[in-house]
């Protein structure tokens, strides 16, 4: 390839890239949807004050461990403001907060002879697994706590942690999005089973 051919090819490539970028922008433009194409804005984290809230904060940390309990030191449910899930009036758990803490502490005493706050991370997980069979609502609370972290309910910490980009304008132009070709035999001709 001579110098002229090189620049022609580069020029062509650049033009094609530019055109496709413009095409993508033009395609995206009619669908500007300001207000939700962004990651969650960090809101106010409820802070633990009472003994119940301190116990529940330790519960959060056992479910999705944070800097002090995850050996890798990354943020967890507490940093993702997940205490909000248990104490926010929009969720069904608020009225059960004291009951949760009491029962979890009781289970901790039964299993390991100490309050929940004094247990190791592994012991705390033991307690939480055991107690969910006694109080099935806790199973739901665990799910809500995990979902709040990994779903970015209060901030984007969990989204970034798993590499989930979250809100977006669509991936159809992203090369990795699809194989864009048949990859398997199909059973039906028209997509309808007889």
């Amino acid at each position: 390839m001579n110098r002229r051919q090189f620049f022609e090819r580069m020029g062509g490539w650049s033009l094609a890239t530019l055109l496709s970028a413009v095409a993508a922008r033009a395609d995206d433009a009619p669908y500007e949807t300001p207000g939700f194409l962004r990651k969650p804005v960090p809101g106010a984290c409820l802070q633990p004050g009472t003994d119940t809230e301190k116990t529940l904060t330790a519960v959060l940390d056992a479910i999705v461990p944070g800097p002090t309990t995850d050996p890798e030191g990354t943020a967890g449910a507490v940093e993702a403001c997940s205490l909000n899930v248990l104490l926010d009036a929009t969720f069904p758990f608020l009225h059960y907060a004291d009951m949760f803490a009491t029962i979890i502490d009781g289970q901790a005493q039964d299993l390991h002879g100490a309050p929940f706050l004094q247990l190791t991370q592994d012991q705390r997980v033991d307690v939480l697994v055991a107690v969910q069979d006694t109080v099935p609502l806790l199973r739901l609370a665990y799910r809500a706590i995990r979902s709040a972290f990994f779903g970015g309910a209060y901030n984007g910490i969990g989204l970034d942690y798993v590499g989930y980009p979250g809100p977006n304008l669509g991936y159809r132009h992203v090369p990795e999005f699809s194989f864009r070709a048949p990859v398997c035999q199909e059973l039906t001709a028209d997509g309808r089973m007889p």
Binding site: T90, A148, G151, A153, P167
Partner: peptide, 11 residues
Amino acid sequence: PASFPQDWAFR
């Protein structure tokens, strides 16, 4: 369409 935020949070 604006009623549908790209948001998986419970609220």
